[in-house]
Simulated scan of single mutants.
Amino acid sequence: MVSPTWRSLRERYQRAKNRLWYGRMPCGQFEANAAFFRIGVIAHNLFVLFKHSALDSGWQRYRVATVRWRLFHLPGKLVRHARSLVLKIATESVELFQNIRTKSYQLAQSLAP
């Protein structure tokens, strides 16, 4: 295996930093920044797992921001009914969330000891 050069490592770091929204690190301490970056990498890996296991093939090309925008910025109406709050959203959104929930549950069951 060829050892990566300093330039290729820097390019990988820049690509990961930009993908994970790390415009700048939180502080000047190397150890704290390294921990912050590692947490971001773990979050990114969890997102990739979620994307590949719970979302349909049409969602595979999207990045974190797009998935977040499409899933959580849905038009809805919050209604008080029978002393409880009900969120009304479009039918296709309900089906999407039910599909995600079912696939996530199946994945959790398959990974459980």
Rank of each mutant, 00 (worst) to 15 (best):
N99E: 12
E92S: 10
L107W: 07
S104N: 05
L107G: 03
M25F: 05
S84H: 07
P75Y: 09
S93T: 00
H52G: 06
S8R: 08
N99I: 03
L111C: 12
A16F: 04
R70C: 08
Q60F: 07
N33I: 07
C27T: 13
Y105D: 11
V79E: 02
S57F: 06
L55P: 01
P4R: 03
G28C: 03
R12W: 14
L87M: 05
Q29N: 13
Y105P: 01
S53Y: 13
F30N: 04
N18I: 10
L85R: 09
K103E: 02
W21G: 13
H52S: 08
R19W: 07
F36N: 03
I42D: 12
E31F: 06
R24E: 06
T91Y: 10
E92N: 13
I39C: 14
F72H: 06
F30V: 02
L71V: 04
R7P: 00
H73I: 09
L78M: 10
L9M: 12
R63I: 11
A34N: 03
Y62M: 13
V67L: 03
A32G: 14
Y22D: 02
Y62Q: 09
S57N: 10
N45S: 09
L85D: 07
F37A: 13
A90F: 09
W59V: 09
L111G: 07
F72N: 04
M25K: 01
S3L: 13
W6I: 12
R68L: 12
L87E: 05
G40L: 06
L9G: 05
F72D: 04
F97H: 02
N33R: 11
R24V: 08
A82T: 10
P113G: 13
L55N: 02
R38G: 12
K77H: 13
K17S: 06
R83M: 14
P4M: 02
R83Q: 15
N18S: 07
N45Y: 08
R80A: 08
R61E: 14
L74P: 12
Q29S: 15
R24M: 05
H81N: 11
R15G: 07
A35R: 15
W69V: 14
L96W: 03
V79H: 00
Y13K: 09
A43K: 11
A35C: 14
T102E: 12
Y22E: 07
W21S: 15
G28H: 04
W6F: 15
S57K: 08
F36A: 01
T5N: 01
E95H: 09
L20M: 15
G76D: 00
R80S: 09
R10F: 10
T102C: 14
E95S: 11
V67F: 05
L85P: 00
P26T: 07
F36H: 05
Y13T: 04
L111E: 10
H52I: 05
F50D: 04
H81K: 07
S57W: 05
L107N: 03
G28Q: 06
T66K: 09
V94K: 02
G58P: 08
E31T: 06
F50I: 01
F37H: 02
P75C: 06
L71W: 00
L46C: 02
W21C: 14
R63A: 04
P75E: 10
L71T: 04
Q60L: 08
I100Y: 00
I89T: 02
Y105R: 15
F30C: 04
E92R: 08
A32S: 10
Q60I: 00
S93E: 11
